[in-house]
């Protein structure tokens, strides 16, 4: 029985080693650091070249379509970040003035975040607008 068990251990080991190797390589390729707009401003140069995920609010009136992509600004309190969207997919339906957005990409030399992905949700939608303590818990699919 012993040699049998050994063979199974070897097989299991091979599977696990292969997966670990894949995990490490895929991990490096896909990882992105979360930053808020404010954190990004504090870091300055340090974050250049890193793949980032930056969350903030879309500044009202800042969305402009130009030849080289969609331009807008992400804001958080006082800080503000220019973003240029270069991604292939159309912007999500929820992306509009004032919505909460998470953009993914890298900061270019001029300080613009060149985004390849936008996720957005309507932050304002379910907040207490009917006046009162009543904020519903949020939108969603199930």
């Amino acid at each position: 029985m012993r040699p049998m068990r050994g063979r199974f251990l070897i097989g299991t080991g091979i599977v696990l080693a292969a997966v670990l190797w894949l995990a490490f390589t895929g991990f490096d390729e896909g990882k992105a650091y979360y930053r808020t707009v404010e954190e990004l401003r504090e870091e300055g140069e340090a974050s250049a070249g890193k793949r980032l995920k930056v969350g903030g609010n879309v500044e009202a009136g800042s969305i402009v379509w130009k030849e080289d992509g969609l331009h807008f600004r992400l804001t958080q309190n006082e800080a503000s970040l220019p973003v240029r969207y270069l991604g292939e997919a159309p912007v999500p339906d929820t992306f509009k003035d004032g919505s909460q957005a998470v953009v993914e990409g890298t900061v270019a030399s001029d300080g613009t975040l060149e985004a390849v992905k936008i996720q957005a949700k309507c932050a304002s939608k379910y907040e207490a607008e009917y006046g009162g303590e009543s904020a519903g818990a949020g939108d969603s699919r199930s």
Binding site: L22, A23, G26, F27, E29, G30, K31, A32, K53, E104
Partner: peptide
């Protein structure tokens, strides 16, 4: 916070 994207999931 570090997120891993689709490349990680697909790779494995």
């Amino acid at each position: 916070q570090i997120s891993v994207g689709p490349p990680y999931f697909n790779r494995i």
